[in-house]
Design a protein around this nucleic acid. Sequence first.
DNA 1: TAGATTGTTAATCGATTAACAATC
DNA 2: TAGATTGTTAATCGATTAACAATC
Lengths: 218, 218
Amino acid sequence: MPVRDGNKTGIPKGVINRLPLYYRYLAELARQEVEKVSSSELGEALGLTAAQIRSDLSYFGSFGQHGYGYRVDELYNQISSILGLDRAYNLILIGAGNLGKAIASYQNFRNRGFEIKAIFDNDPLLEGKYLSGCIIQPIDKLTEYLANNPVDIAVITTPREVAQDVCNQVIAGGVKAIWNFAPVRLQVPEGVVLEHIHLTNSLLRLSFKMKHSDKIKD
Amino acid sequence: MPVRDGNKTGIPKGVINRLPLYYRYLAELARQEVEKVSSSELGEALGLTAAQIRSDLSYFGSFGQHGYGYRVDELYNQISSILGLDRAYNLILIGAGNLGKAIASYQNFRNRGFEIKAIFDNDPLLEGKYLSGCIIQPIDKLTEYLANNPVDIAVITTPREVAQDVCNQVIAGGVKAIWNFAPVRLQVPEGVVLEHIHLTNSLLRLSFKMKHSDKIKD
DNA sequence: TAGATTGTTAATCGATTAACAATC
DNA sequence: TAGATTGTTAATCGATTAACAATC
């Protein structure tokens, strides 16, 4: 499995954004029991060039066959593995407000091996209630929980005021990945990975595009 | 107000992503009653180069003063206007499940002039209930509503199966902007703008980063 | 084999950064 | 005026695309 690039230069962000697209489209093809696909067919379907798809894949190895294309099931498995979907993840969720409830109830993640194991919230009215099969615990139980249970990903759906504090706590407890929904740029040390879903920024981009739709690239 | 670029080449995506950052940080500075800020101070705070900030702003005009920097309140107002926040928007929300409820209850948008005026859902159990001050209506009232009320933005929080169909309906009703939370790539005609929040893609990126944290750029 | 499509290199394109004249 | 910082051009960097030898 020759890899185009050592870990000197790294994987460009655009590649990381496109991998989930490939994954999802290949999942769809596999469901339809399509056997093979070429980079130009993939490009056609996803609005990308064939060259870009081949180039993206070549960061991770050679998965196709000259003159044939890619076997759908094989490429799907390879990309699943590249995305880290060949294992299960333990999640905890901090903040059981509306957004936290929505995420806890969302089944798409669970189906792919991301399971919420514990939920924390500071509201005494929520304490002891069940949400998606988890009992809601007060946040001062968080450190104890982290000391006794393996946690891969912390999902932060708290108000912005406490998000950084919660973030620091879970990092202190050894969590290495944070999925943040609070509207604040969290500071994390080297070695902790972070994905941010920022609803307001997205809405502001939409508003911008409405005002400037004539002069937007792409 | 000399603009660096006609609408020949357009505004790069990166600029659109950064404008909300500038907006939010300037709002914070204004709240703290800071009077002036330089591009290097902004860059420092946001993890960007001073040159990039000046370059981004120059797409829209010249807002600074040589030898001084930028007046916080003035730049804040200018960026607000660039983002289209100098007016109000009428929103409708289709899909009153967990995610729809979370968004309807989220006050951050309303404070900036984005107001949800109507909510639609196909579930007969929800019909007639109130959510954030709106009565939940069946989706077959949607076309009639669009014919009689101005709608700037449709928020789609339906299941993926019906999202494209709902999208087509609102576009047929004249809506020019769609904020999509359903896990599907919506097809929209020229002239309709689209912002997509894709929770699963974000989680897959996080998973990827966990597996490859050693070889990621930036 | 002939036809097709990969993987990869070279060429192109676009975005970021550095540098600096303009100027408050 | 001297010092500082902008707005913009030129240089650099990185990502995308085109081209093609390798090969199934």
